[in-house]
C-alpha cells in the first residue's frame, strides 16, 4: 500500500509541479515559481514548499510577497492542483478580492480555462468576474436579517 501511495503521490506531485510552473508564468508574466520537495529522499512523508519569484524581484519566501501577490500565488497553487487532478466542480469565495485590474484579467483567463473542464461557482464583488459568468445570482439581505435571492440567473445565456 505504501508503494501505491508513493507512486500515486509522485505522479500527482509531478503533474502539479508542471501545472504550477505553467500557471505561475501565466499569472506573473516574467516571474518564476516552483514547487519543491522538502525531503526528496522520502516520498511518503516529504513536505512541499512553494518558491515564487515575481518579475524583477529576488525574493522567494512567500511571507515577503505583497498581499495581492501572495493571494495570487495561493490561487496559482490551487489552480495547479485543480488542473493536475481535475474535479467536477470548484467553489471559490472572493479569491480575487485583493487583486488589481491587470492581475484580475490574468486570473479570469485562468478561470475560463478551468471552465472548459469543470463547473465553477464563484462568489465575487468584481464586475469583470461577473462578466465572464454564465449565470448570475444576486443575494441580498433586507433589514430583517434574512437572505433572499432577488434575481435568479440574471446573466443567463448572456
Amino acid at each position: 500500500m505504501d508503494l501505491r501511495v508513493q507512486r500515486v503521490f509522485t505522479e500527482a506531485f509531478e503533474d502539479t509541479q508542471a501545472q504550477f510552473v505553467r500557471v505561475f508564468e501565466r499569472l506573473f508574466p516574467g516571474g518564476e515559481g516552483r514547487l519543491v520537495l522538502t525531503d526528496p529522499s522520502d516520498m511518503l512523508t516529504t513536505g512541499i514548499d512553494v518558491e515564487a519569484r515575481p518579475a524583477g524581484k529576488k525574493i522567494k519566501r512567500l511571507s515577503l510577497l505583497s498581499g495581492g501577490e501572495r493571494s495570487l500565488t495561493a490561487v496559482a497553487l490551487l489552480v495547479a492542483i485543480f488542473k493536475a487532478r481535475p474535479s467536477p466542480f470548484y467553489v471559490m469565495d472572493e479569491v480575487e478580492a485583493a487583486l488589481d485590474d491587470t492581475n484580475l484579467g490574468r486570473l479570469i483567463t485562468i478561470f475560463e480555462e478551468l471552465r472548459e473542464s469543470s463547473q465553477l461557482i464563484v462568489i465575487t464583488h468584481q464586475k469583470r468576474t461577473m462578466e465572464v459568468a454564465d449565470a448570475l445570482y444576486g443575494v441580498t439581505m433586507r433589514g430583517d436579517g434574512v437572505s433572499t435571492v432577488i434575481s435568479q440567473r440574471l446573466g443567463a445565456d448572456a
Binding site: Q119, V122, I123, T124, D134, Y137, V149, A156
Partner: peptide, 13 residues
C-alpha cells in the same frame, strides 16, 4: 440555486 455547467457567479453586497 440552479447551477449551470460553466461559471456561476453569486454576487451581492
Amino acid at each position: 440555486f440552479d447551477f449551470e455547467p460553466g461559471v456561476t457567479a453569486v454576487v451581492g453586497p
